[in-house]
Nucleic acid binder design. Sequence first.
DNA 1: GTCTATACGAAGATAGAC
DNA 2: GTCTATCTTCGTATAGAC
Lengths: 181, 181
Amino acid sequence: MATTPLRERTRQEILRRAMELFTEKGYTATSLQDIATAVGCSKATVLYHFNGKPAVAAAVLEPAAKLVADLVAEAAQLPPAEAQARLITDFTELAVRFRGLLDVLNDVVPTMDQLPEFHGMVEVGTALTRLLAGTDDPGEIALAGYAIQGLLGECRAPVQRADEELRDLAVTAMRRLLITP
Amino acid sequence: MATTPLRERTRQEILRRAMELFTEKGYTATSLQDIATAVGCSKATVLYHFNGKPAVAAAVLEPAAKLVADLVAEAAQLPPAEAQARLITDFTELAVRFRGLLDVLNDVVPTMDQLPEFHGMVEVGTALTRLLAGTDDPGEIALAGYAIQGLLGECRAPVQRADEELRDLAVTAMRRLLITP
DNA sequence: GTCTATACGAAGATAGAC
DNA sequence: GTCTATCTTCGTATAGAC
């Protein structure tokens, strides 16, 4: 074996607990000490495995980010109208499923420039917006961005709303915004 | 004179500098020490005039919040369709004008429950959403909330966009979302 | 009443012993 | 690889000078 299992085991345990805490209390309200206590190690150990708190956030977001990236890559192979229809339902579904983590994403956006882990996410976001617009018209692309902001905002909003209800709302909103008769 | 000018002068100076710093660097990234240094006083002085950092935020947001509250109160007197049309243009205009402060609002939302200064803002937001929907249908009210989230998200987004461009985008989006032919 | 000096606990982060 | 100890800075609280 090339990699030592011990390193990976600790890393994964930190990630598991961090995700739980971020989902429960939010990113800002969760301290490195909270994570360390939940794992049963010291703050310094957490910072040995991850290069700062934003790096923990990046690692927690990574699985969801990969699903979005894969979805966008698939959609890019389809004709524009089909790609748009596919993303309206499937990207919405992913956003709702991982909505507990959107608070982490939001708190981390301001520091994205400095974090190399996030550079890929920006490009995926750009591609997603263009495919969601279904055209290269700048006005429609801007509306697609507006639609995404609305979706992410609703997912993070403190209003109690069932997953299915939220999905239906977002799909209706995106169709009205982006599918012009 | 009932009020001493000195107190008011210091208070206003703190507010002025805090607003500048919040707009430049964001709420979280601005410390009480930053504000005190900019004003030329000590941290303790800032906390003598304002009961904690969130209270500074509340005071900074207050003028904008009052304009929104007044606008909503005016719109509430109009027939539904006129109120909706009025809010689409005028609320958008206010959001764009004060977009530098929306980051403050965003960072403060999670603690709104505990801050009495903000309780009025929640009610105004509810009334705004209902009037923007133009109807009492829960589905349309939810879409109005989605429209507001989209607007606020776009205003806070790091994308460079001129004020007029942003206004046009939001007005177009709101009309597509809320005015059903 | 107005403000400064000082101190406290918790945060993120680093250095070095083991 | 993990720890303890330590650093800086944050928001906050209080005592007391003027």
